[in-house]
């Protein structure tokens, strides 16, 4: 019961591992970035889950509501999402330039080209 009740956290862990696996196991740079995004998203979910309070309503002041969810993690995650977007943008820009320089986005092939040079 308790294990199922924490299903948010199970999803976080699964997503985190999926993302992490993609980053480590794939040699295609784009897939690495996608993996990184999934990895970061799992953390966003973790923070949002922290903010939820049982029976709490949305954090907007209203008469007759006593318990509110904690809005702070939401704000933090808004910032973290912006950071994530910036990281992705930079990573994609780098991939474009790597493709221009090496004519490939595969890590193994890049490595081979570097060894030859």
């Amino acid at each position: 019961m308790n294990l199922l009740g924490l299903y948010n956290y199970w999803i976080v862990i699964v997503l985190m591992m999926v993302g992490f696996y993609l980053v480590i196991a794939r040699s295609n740079l784009l897939r690495k970035v996608i993996g990184l995004n999934i990895f970061q998203t799992s953390v966003f979910l973790l923070f949002i889950s922290i903010g939820k309070i049982s029976g709490g309503s949305a954090p907007i002041l209203k008469d007759g509501v006593e318990i509110y969810s904690n809005p702070l993690p939401h704000v933090l995650i808004l910032t973290a999402i912006v950071v994530g977007v910036a990281t992705t943008a930079l990573a994609l820009a780098l991939i474009v330039r790597i493709r221009e320089a090496y004519a490939t986005v595969d890590e193994d092939e890049i490595h081979v080209q570097d060894e030859e040079a």
């Binding site: 992490f20 980053v23 740079l29 690495k32 990184l36 990895f39 970061q40 990281t87 930079l90 990573a91 780098l94 991939i95 330039r97 790597i98 320089a101 090496y102 890049i110 570097d114």
Partner: peptide, 17 residues
């Protein structure tokens, strides 16, 4: 050097993790 690009990318992945 073009290897700067891959070095930067590698740093980006590890740094972000």
């Amino acid at each position: 050097d073009r290897r700067a690009l891959t070095a930067s990318f590698q740093y980006l992945i590890m740094g972000t993790i």
